[in-house]
Write a protein that binds this DNA or RNA. Structure first.
Length: 479
RNA sequence: GGCGCUAUCGUCUAAGGGUUAGGACAGGGCCCUCUCAAGGCUCAAAUACGGGUUCGAAUCCCGUUAGCGCUGCCA
């Protein structure tokens, strides 16, 4: 059974790099009929916060890619400590009583620190004696420095990887306060939770050799490793909460009106592609097409401009979201739109005895111009609400010679129409324009302005029918 | 400093020994048109640099440069 895991540390919000890692894990698991484990790596209790945890859960939840199990490392601490003690007992680890922050001389001399020979060679008796005397220590893994062994593994993305054991330092397993380090906790849990595939950021590529050493010492099966290229900010540095701020948070995309399928589609195209020029992919297609082997090895830059309201996100991300928003079956889009409207505090329009087209029809009409859900309450305000702003250009269209008066006249004619269809409205409008010796375009644009408050938007006649006769007459008379 | 990874249009990417180096976003232009989008067409835009191997290199090898990662009692 394939089992993958996503292991965020709750020290901040979930950024889109982490989200992409989660998505790739999820796709891989689903494709193989496996399970997704969400493991909260909160061994660093001081830096972990409940707010961060909640924000991560919210972000993941929003993606609508459910996980199957959830664990917290802090609850598994006993297992980690036991593992360290077992290694200590077997001589595969040792206590290092060097004071914190006191640099081993070896580091100064060679520029590289691998081990503290004094602590490494302490006899067991002396080590036990100093420990029971209460002297603080950190437990280090004893890397077999003497051998000329080279560790090799086949990374599913980066291919054959090898490293001389002599280049690996004696890394810490337990801190002097007794808490497990990331390397220990992560490996013990991966082994214990039966993780078969570790798919994570490339920043862990070189850590993998340490983990392999630990897996061997712990006696567990080695999982398959796959490292993902990093996501970089516009400045070329690794995407991070600290450096790039809230703008790279997953919830920021949600709050700006992204669709889960929009952000997922965009993120999947960063570092991976289906190789056939297809760019718009549904979740089902992604599950089917995703291959670790076709993940790139080069870091990808996410472009955004924190100073610009317009380009807060990568323009391509916005474009993809717009494409998703337009291509989704309207029925599937509706729930998102309803939430958006509700959050704006608006009542959902009701279908009034067949006089008004369905909410679906309206959404379908206006969505071809929209890129995010926010557009429904901003640019789409007039379709759902009686109070809406009129923009400057629309105002100008209304102020053109004779427009307001003609629109009021049009309202009277529309009131007498038997059939209120876009054809009948068009015929009525055009003949009225002709009678008045006026260009139809003036009235058409004026009508759009009066009905929607905007100079741009769908075909004016489509707006008439989308709003329904009563609403149209009301708005035209008030012009 | 040491070890490792990477390098194709501004950005995301395709081509993995033989292509006019393809697509997408963004940008320019045209068509469509009641406006704006959408859509269609089109223009501009790239193999980091230097050596080698080869009849032939974006592709394989070496070097350089640049970027990134690891080198923590962070993860």
């Amino acid at each position: 059974m394939t089992r993958v895991r996503f292991a965020p540390s709750p020290t901040g919000f979930l950024h889109i790099g982490g989200a992409r890692t989660y998505i790739f894990n999820w796709l891989f698991a689903r494709q193989h009929g496996g399970k997704v484990v969400l493991r909260i790596d909160d061994t660093d209790r001081e830096r972990s916060t409940d707010e961060a945890l909640q924000s991560i859960i919210d972000g993941l939840h929003w993606l609508e890619l459910p996980w199957d199990e959830q664990h917290h490392q802090s609850e598994r601490r006993t297992k980690h400590v036991e593992a360290a003690e077992a290694l200590l007992a077997k001589g595969l680890a040792y206590r290092d009583f060097t004071r914190q922050n006191a640099l081993p001389e070896a580091k100064d001399a060679a520029g590289v620190w691998l081990a503290n020979p004094v602590m490494r060679e302490l006899t067991r008796d002396e080590s036990d004696r100093r420990a029971s005397a209460g002297e603080p220590f950190v437990v280090r893994f004893r890397v077999s420095l003497g051998t000329d062994r080279t560790i090799t593994f086949h990374d599913q993305v980066f291919g054959e990887q090898s490293r001389k054991i002599a280049d690996i330092e004696d890394f810490a397993l337990l801190r002097s306060n007794g808490s497990p380090t990331y390397h220990l906790a992560s490996t013990v849990d991966d082994s214990d939770l039966g993780i078969t595939h570790i798919i994570r950021g490339q920043d862990h590529l070189t850590n993998t050799f340490k983990h392999i050493l630990l897996f061997e010492a712990l006696g567990g099966d080695l999982p398959v490793f796959a490292h993902l290229p990093l996501l970089l900010g516009p400045d070329g540095s690794k995407l991070s909460k600290r450096r790039h701020g809230e703008i790279v948070s997953v919830t920021n995309y949600r709050d700006h009106g992204f669709l889960p399928q929009g952000i997922i589609n965009y993120l999947c195209l960063l570092g991976w592609s289906p190789k056939d020029n297809q760019e718009l992919l549904t979740r089902g297609e992604l599950i089917e097409l995703f291959k670790l082997e076709s993940v790139n090895r080069t870091n990808a830059v996410v472009t955004f401009d924190e100073d610009s309201e317009q380009s807060w996100a990568d323009p391509k991300a916005l474009w993809i979201n717009g494409q998703q928003l337009r291509s989704l079956p309207v029925r599937d889009l509706l729930p998102y739109v309803e939430i958006e409207l509700r959050e704006a505090g608006w009542r959902l329009p009701q279908n009034e005895a067949g006089r008004k087209p369905s909410l679906e029809a309206t959404v379908d009409l206006i969505r071809s111009r929209f890129n995010t859900l926010k557009d429904f309450t901003e640019r789409g305000a007039a379709y759902f609400n009686d109070t809406f702003p009129t923009d400057i250009k629309a105002e100008k269209n209304l102020n053109k010679e004779g427009v307001r008066e003609s629109l009021r006249a049009l309202a009277d004619r529309l009131a007498t129409l038997n059939d209120f269809t876009s054809e009948s409205v068009e015929t009525t409008l055009r003949s009225l324009a002709e009678e008045r010796g006026m260009k139809a375009g003036l009235m058409i644009n004026g009508a759009r302005a009066a009905l929607s408050g905007q100079s741009v938007g769908p075909s004016a006649f489509a707006i008439f029918t989308a709003l329904g006769r009563d609403c149209v007459i009301d708005r035209l008379r008030k012009v």
